[in-house]
Lab assay of single mutants.
Amino acid sequence: GYRKEQERLGIPYDPIQWSTDQVLHWVVWVMKEFSMTDIDLTTLNISGRELCSLNQEDFFQRVPRGEILWSHLELLRKY
């Protein structure tokens, strides 16, 4: 899972600490993992702090059909 990727690349476990690059890395990883092609990366060119401050409605406004990303983010925030 993504935890291995975080360990390998030194990405903080807590998404709130992610840099913009780390947010984009996570988005690309999830897209590959779940064979998603319809995500516009430019809408998530934000820091982890900004990402974690979005509520579900705001998130889906930025990322239509972003349910998998949202669920994955929720999982990461719990651990």
Rank of each mutant, 00 (worst) to 15 (best):
G1D: 10
G1W: 04
G1E: 08
G1Q: 12
G1R: 15
Y2N: 08
R3S: 07
R3C: 07
R3M: 08
R3T: 08
K4M: 12
K4Q: 09
K4D: 09
K4P: 05
K4W: 09
E5W: 04
E5G: 03
E5V: 10
Q6G: 03
Q6I: 15
Q6E: 06
Q6C: 09
E7T: 10
E7S: 08
E7V: 07
E7W: 05
E7A: 11
E7M: 10
E7L: 07
R8Q: 08
R8T: 09
R8C: 05
R8H: 07
R8S: 08
L9I: 10
L9M: 14
L9W: 13
L9P: 02
L9A: 10
L9E: 09
L9F: 15
L9Y: 08
L9N: 10
G10K: 12
G10E: 10
I11K: 00
I11T: 02
I11M: 05
I11R: 02
I11H: 03
I11N: 02
I11C: 04
P12T: 03
P12S: 06
P12V: 03
P12M: 01
P12N: 04
Y13N: 14
Y13I: 13
Y13R: 10
D14L: 02
D14A: 05
D14G: 02
D14Y: 03
P15Y: 01
P15E: 00
P15A: 03
P15L: 03
P15W: 00
I16N: 10
I16Q: 15
I16A: 13
I16L: 13
Q17C: 09
Q17Y: 13
Q17H: 15
Q17I: 06
W18L: 00
W18Y: 03
W18F: 01
W18G: 02
W18Q: 00
W18V: 01
S19R: 08
S19F: 01
S19W: 01
S19H: 10
S19E: 05
S19M: 01
T20M: 08
D21N: 12
D21P: 10
D21Y: 06
D21Q: 11
D21C: 06
D21G: 14
Q22G: 01
Q22H: 11
Q22W: 00
Q22S: 03
Q22I: 01
V23R: 03
V23S: 01
V23W: 00
L24C: 14
L24W: 07
H25M: 05
H25P: 00
H25I: 08
H25F: 07
W26Y: 04
W26T: 00
W26H: 02
V27E: 01
V27Q: 06
V27C: 11
V28N: 10
V28A: 14
V28M: 14
V28Y: 12
V28E: 12
V28I: 13
V28S: 12
V28R: 15
W29E: 03
W29K: 02
W29T: 04
W29V: 01
V30S: 11
V30M: 12
M31D: 02
M31S: 09
M31R: 08
M31K: 10
M31F: 10
K32W: 04
K32V: 05
K32F: 04
K32C: 07
K32H: 13
E33W: 03
E33F: 04
E33Q: 09
E33G: 07
E33C: 06
E33D: 15
E33H: 10
F34S: 11
F34N: 15
F34I: 08
S35W: 05
S35I: 02
S35M: 08
S35V: 08
M36H: 07
M36S: 09
T37S: 11
T37K: 15
T37W: 09
D38L: 04
D38E: 15
D38C: 13
D38H: 11
I39W: 08
I39L: 13
I39N: 11
I39P: 07
I39E: 09
I39Q: 06
I39K: 06
I39C: 12
D40M: 03
D40F: 03
D40S: 09
D40K: 06
L41H: 11
L41N: 06
L41Y: 13
T42P: 09
T42E: 12
T42C: 12
T42S: 14
T42K: 09
L44D: 00
L44V: 07
L44R: 00
L44E: 01
L44F: 09
L44M: 13
N45F: 05
N45W: 06
N45E: 12
N45M: 11
N45D: 08
N45G: 10
N45S: 13
I46W: 06
I46M: 15
I46T: 03
I46E: 01
S47N: 12
S47M: 04
S47T: 15
S47C: 12
G48E: 00
G48N: 03
G48C: 01
G48R: 00
G48L: 00
G48M: 00
G48K: 00
G48H: 05
R49T: 10
R49N: 06
R49K: 10
R49Q: 13
R49F: 09
R49W: 08
R49P: 14
R49M: 15
R49G: 09
E50C: 10
E50Y: 09
E50R: 06
L51M: 08
L51A: 00
C52A: 06
C52F: 05
C52I: 15
C52S: 05
C52T: 06
S53L: 09
S53G: 11
S53T: 08
S53E: 15
S53Q: 10
S53W: 04
S53C: 11
L54H: 04
L54P: 00
L54S: 03
N55Q: 09
N55P: 12
N55G: 13
N55L: 06
N55W: 02
N55T: 13
Q56H: 12
Q56L: 05
Q56T: 09
Q56A: 12
E57G: 12
E57Q: 12
E57T: 11
E57P: 10
E57L: 10
D58I: 13
D58W: 07
D58E: 10
F59P: 00
F59M: 04
F59G: 01
F60M: 15
F60E: 11
F60H: 09
F60C: 10
F60P: 04
F60S: 14
Q61K: 13
Q61I: 07
Q61L: 14
Q61A: 13
Q61N: 10
Q61T: 14
Q61P: 02
R62H: 07
R62D: 02
R62M: 15
R62G: 04
R62V: 12
R62Y: 08
V63Q: 06
V63R: 00
V63G: 06
P64L: 01
P64H: 08
P64A: 05
P64Y: 02
P64Q: 06
P64S: 06
P64T: 05
R65Q: 15
R65I: 07
R65P: 04
R65G: 14
R65S: 13
R65D: 15
R65H: 09
G66K: 02
G66L: 02
G66D: 01
G66S: 07
G66T: 02
E67Q: 09
E67R: 09
E67A: 13
E67P: 06
I68A: 15
I68H: 10
I68E: 12
I68V: 13
I68L: 12
I68M: 10
I68P: 15
I68N: 07
L69I: 04
L69H: 06
L69P: 00
W70D: 02
W70N: 02
S71Y: 13
S71K: 09
S71F: 09
S71E: 13
S71W: 12
H72T: 04
H72K: 05
H72R: 05
H72V: 03
H72I: 05
H72G: 04
L73M: 05
L73C: 00
L73F: 07
L73K: 04
E74M: 13
E74R: 11
E74W: 05
E74I: 05
E74C: 08
E74L: 09
E74S: 12
L75P: 07
L75N: 15
L75F: 08
L75E: 15
L75G: 09
L76P: 03
L76H: 05
L76I: 06
L76F: 05
R77D: 04
R77A: 03
R77T: 06
R77S: 05
K78R: 14
K78D: 15
K78M: 11
K78V: 10
K78Q: 11
Y79N: 15
Y79I: 10
Y79K: 15
Y79E: 14
Y79C: 11
Y79T: 08
